[in-house]
Amino acid sequence: MTAVPANAADPFPVRPITLILPFPAGGVSDGQLRALAAAASKDLGQPIIIVNRPGNGGTLAPAAMARSSAPDGYTIALAVRTLLRLPHLSKVNYDPLHDFTYIIGLSGFSFGIVVRDDAPWKTLKDMLDDARARPGAIAYGATGRGSSGHVAMERLARAAGVRLNFVPYKGTAEVTNDLLGGHIGVYSDAGWGGVVESGRVRVLAIMGETRPKRWPQVPTLKELGYDIVVTSPIGLIGPRGMDPAVVARLHDALRKAMSDPAYVRAMDQNDQIPEYLGSEAYAQSAAREFAREKVLMQELGITLE
């Protein structure tokens, strides 16, 4: 039987939507986005299928989508801050301000400096003092080169006058496994809430403006004397040139889904606060952050070439 194409007048969507997560399954964004997709699917009347395609700090899959996917709303992707930062660190095959359609801003990852419960360091000062005594001996992990966790720790190392050994990973699940296995000493990333609850690790500091609601005893880097605040906004994007009506339909369904109880629970588990941005505001924010990242990378002198 020959398939009959959907009539151009049919309302979007008329078939399943693919949502690309640029990290491995089991990471911090995986549970959240699956909950969001399930809730939005009810409103859209079509399933949103999650596809994990890790690589290059979360930039490989969105860049591939921009080059090869039709701007019809049936393929969208999660965007992370690294997408705006990487062009300032190395040659890339995408333009973050022109190759994407910004659909909706969702939240920001909550980053922490995490160690195993049996680590010798009880405070961040303990860890930095040890790093000062043993340059390059302490290894820390984060998701990809140029990621927010990587850049934040390099900023901290510079401010503290120490040298740390960075180990890149494809996703937070891998970082967690290697921390618990003793292959690295420090975890500098998001998604640490669940493992802290298990009692197997402790958080030396968090990188946000304020202490986390569930862990009020954990100080911020600013409280410890380091003027470093890491907010790594995430949102959903599509290829450039999407029909505004399709963007609006996706946006509205996803905005409604942000209040779904399962999604809210997934956010709370990782101490993330919703940071909603509409389509136009999200695009404007991306442009501002792209410019800020250029200045910051120049100041730090970080390059991946």
Rank of each mutant, 00 (worst) to 15 (best):
M297E: 07
L180I: 13
D271Q: 12
A160K: 00
G191L: 07
T172A: 12
L89S: 08
A137V: 06
P212E: 04
L128M: 14
T75I: 09
F100C: 11
D243P: 06
A157S: 08
M65S: 02
V92C: 12
R67N: 05
D95F: 08
P274F: 11
A3S: 13
R249T: 11
A119N: 00
Y187G: 03
S285L: 12
Q217S: 06
P22V: 08
D126V: 07
H183T: 13
Y102A: 01
E305M: 12
V186L: 10
R34Y: 11
R132Y: 10
S107W: 07
A63M: 00
A190S: 12
G181V: 06
Q217P: 05
I17F: 10
G144S: 11
A152G: 03
M153S: 04
P71K: 06
L78E: 01
W192Q: 00
W121H: 02
L224R: 06
T82H: 08
L89G: 06
E299S: 09
D130E: 04
E280G: 04
K222T: 14
V151P: 02
A40H: 06
A25L: 13
A248R: 10
L97H: 01
G185N: 02
T176A: 08
A39S: 11
V218K: 03
G31L: 03
P24T: 06
R81A: 15
A77V: 01
D30F: 08
S147Q: 13
M153G: 03
D268I: 03
D268S: 14
S285T: 10
T220I: 10
V4S: 10
H251L: 09
A257Q: 04
L78C: 00
H251K: 13
P120A: 03
H88M: 05
T231R: 14
P216D: 10
I20F: 07
R163K: 15
V151Q: 00
V203K: 01
G171P: 12
M153W: 05
L86F: 12
M127L: 15
P5C: 00
G45A: 08
A25D: 15
Y282H: 11
S110H: 13
P120F: 04
T101D: 10
I103Y: 10
R34E: 14
I20Q: 04
E280C: 02
G193I: 05
D243E: 07
I234C: 07
D129E: 15
A64P: 09
F100D: 01
L300F: 11
L204F: 08
S110T: 15
R132N: 10
S259F: 09
W215V: 00
D95M: 12
D189N: 08
M1I: 06
P96C: 05
Y226V: 01
A266F: 03
P87I: 00
K170F: 15
S279E: 03
P274Q: 03
E289K: 11
D260F: 02
L224W: 02
P22N: 02
R132K: 15
S188G: 00
I104P: 13
G278I: 06
P274I: 03
A281V: 04
F109W: 14
G146P: 12
R249N: 08
N165K: 15
L236S: 09
T18E: 15
R155G: 10
G26K: 09
E174A: 13
A66L: 01
D117H: 07
G278Q: 09
A283K: 00
A39E: 11
F12I: 02
L128E: 03
A159L: 12
R265C: 04
